[in-house]
Design a protein around this nucleic acid. Structure first.
Lengths: 142, 142
DNA sequence: TTAAGGCTTAGAATAGTTCTAAATCCCACT
DNA sequence: AGTGGGATTTAGAACTATTCTAAGCCTTAA
């Protein structure tokens, strides 16, 4: 069994759980994210999936991405102005945004750090999620 | 000496430092942010400054906000999709975004927490800035 | 096998932001 | 005081990202 198949299963299952159907469009969009984990925009994804499914429309790509976000299979991320980017990494992680190249890297977040960060919230503030975004440069040694 | 005057001074000084001129437009835009510290969009700011300067254009508001960001007098913040918001709070702080109301609150960040968060970066990652955004609900007791 | 509803599609519409070109302002130098 | 030049502002056009609309298609369940 390839990991491709496994991913399809996971997708089908999560979709079913929300009462949604699995479709070829949703599959290729999800696979496009898993295959190249570089935080693409909806437009990037559209360009990539066209080779598999030449007639897929940009609106459908937006719909599929939104669906995947709703099913918690994908995270939407917004760095500064500009298009929303999508990330299939479900592990808790921060993002590092290289200002020179525009590249984005995932940085694993230890769970105790998340706890510590969340603990600064005064009473009455109840956070569902925390996004941490670093901006800066990466040096050659990375 | 009013705090208004003090702010103008600070503005004039920072602008001069970057070789830029102080203008009525830049002053009213900056004051609009200081007066009501609620993370307005460019459009919000435009609406507010029109009472002081009825002929100011939206393009100028965008220009002024960008200038203020360049001079480090204001921070630009992006929550999810949607317009950029502006924040005159220069102290290190996180943002809490109330998903029910859309309201945004500043949360002070102790400097040791910033250190701790930044320390998770692997070697080769050099961060200039960290943005921390909480999403969730605020309860009545706040 | 058919009806109902979910999904996809192309294209129009909208929202936010940036661009362009012309007008205006302000400072430095005469 | 007068002038040239660069910085700034302006209105509107242009552009980009996203959502909406309406039509058709596909699938599932009766």
């Amino acid at each position: 069994m390839s990991s491709h198949a496994t991913n399809s299963e996971a997708l089908a299952q999560k979709l079913a759980h929300s009462g949604l159907r699995n479709t070829p469009q949703r599959e290729v969009v999800y696979n496009a994210l898993l295959t190249k984990r570089d935080h693409p925009t909806a437009d990037d994804v559209h360009a990539r999936v066209r080779t598999d499914l030449p007639t897929i429309s940009l609106a459908t790509v937006y719909n599929c991405l939104e669906t995947l976000v709703q099913c918690n299979l994908v995270r939407a991320v917004n760095f500064e102005r500009g298009p929303t980017r999508y990330c299939p990494n479900l592990a808790p992680h921060a993002h590092f945004h290289d200002e020179a190249t525009g590249a984005t890297f995932d940085i694993d977040l230890p769970s105790d750090l998340i706890t510590k960060v969340t603990s600064i919230l005064p009473p009455g503030y109840d956070a569902d999620a925390v996004d941490i975004i670093f901006r800066g440069k990466t040096t050659a040694t990375r």
